[in-house]
């Protein structure tokens, strides 16, 4: 399904394009594009768990938090180099992902949602109470990596965009593999999947581990991009933000995981012109997109004949 976006087939070409435009962008553009890249990573991981494997998890911000704090603490206290800290943050998130994955194994649907929701809140709580390590609610400054010859904003742009392209490509390969097909089988019917010889326990845990890794890496990059983190930044609103992104982009679609963050983040930046009405215009943007494309933008592409304007007309007629 993602394959119809042919420009995504050439991540290398994309990498070159972004590398070439980097130096002519101003800091605001670099920052917003970096932010989009971070959320593309986060959304891709979440979509693997939620959209492909069908696990109704609403505690995903926990992995973002774990990754962010791990990267910050490993660099501050252990003086680990940036790249090592980011990978270690991803790995640590995987351990937590496996743990929560085991806890929720007997649960489905809303029951799974509720426990993961509480897991997310508990992680924020621990981060706020473990003050020796995290400095509590007052938060931690996060060091920024230096690449000789590049401004720190340009460096972050290359790091985030590069990581996003690599991780999206990895996810594309994954969904086309046996694992990806097993995810979809579990989503459609766990019983049928196990009849086919697919171990639901094993693949649910794999889905948790992979999405936690994406969340952890995204968290490490987000922390570095923001250069200051507090536990409050990882509350339920973060999960809701990324949930909105994948629903608007397209559940169960890698392309959707890219489109969603672009629409939500870029939309919010464009809507800055609406000044103090931004909360309303942003809400209307979400509502409008979801009514026009309930299956997500990537879902629209599946129905080539769908006519957006016809859809608007029929909606108006129905009212």
């Amino acid at each position: 399904m993602a394959g119809s976006f042919s420009w995504l087939r050439a991540p290398a070409a994309l990498l070159v394009v972004f590398a070439v435009v980097g130096p002519v962008l101003d800091n605001y553009q670099l920052y917003v594009l970096s932010l989009i890249a971070v959320y593309v990573i986060f959304a891709t991981g979440y979509n693997l768990l939620m959209g492909f494997a069908g696990q109704f998890d609403v505690g995903q911000a926990a992995f973002l938090a774990i990754g962010a704090y791990a990267a910050a603490i490993l660099q501050i206290h252990l003086q680990l180099p940036f790249a090592v800290a980011v990978i270690a943050a991803g790995v640590l998130a995987v351990l937590f992902g496996l743990a929560i994955g085991v806890v929720v194994l007997p649960l489905r649907h809303f029951y799974l949602a509720l426990v993961t929701l509480a897991f997310g809140q508990t992680v924020v709580l621990v981060l706020s109470l473990w003050r020796d390590l995290t400095n509590g609610f007052q938060g931690l400054p996060v060091p920024r990596p230096e690449i000789p010859g590049l401004s720190s904003n340009l460096a972050m742009y290359y790091i985030t965009i590069g990581t996003a392209i690599v991780m999206v490509q990895a996810a594309r390969n994954l969904v086309a593999s046996r694992i990806g097909r097993a995810f979809v089988a579990i989503r459609e019917s766990e019983i049928a999947a196990s009849v086919l010889g697919i171990s639901t326990v094993r693949y649910r845990l794999i889905a948790y581990a992979i999405s936690a890794f994406y969340g952890g890496v995204a968290g490490a990059l987000l922390a570095t991009l923001l250069s200051y983190i507090t536990p409050d930044a990882f509350r339920l609103t973060e999960t809701i933000k990324v949930l909105t992104m994948i629903v608007i982009g397209g559940m169960g679609s890698i392309a959707g995981s890219i489109i969603g963050p672009i629409i939500v983040i870029l939309g919010a930046e464009f809507l800055r012109i609406s000044q103090s009405f931004q909360e309303i215009t942003n809400g209307a943007l979400l509502l409008g997109f979801i009514i026009l494309a309930p299956m997500g933008i990537a879902g629209l592409a599946l129905h080539r004949t769908t006519d957006l304007f016809g859809k608007v007309r029929s909606l108006l007629r129905r009212q």
């Binding site: 605001y28 920052y31 932010l35 987000l222 991009l225 923001l226 200051y228 930044a233 930046e269 800055r272």
Partner: peptide, 10 residues
Amino acid sequence: PGAGVAAATK
């Protein structure tokens, strides 16, 4: 904070 940094950078 993320939106705040975007605002200030803009």
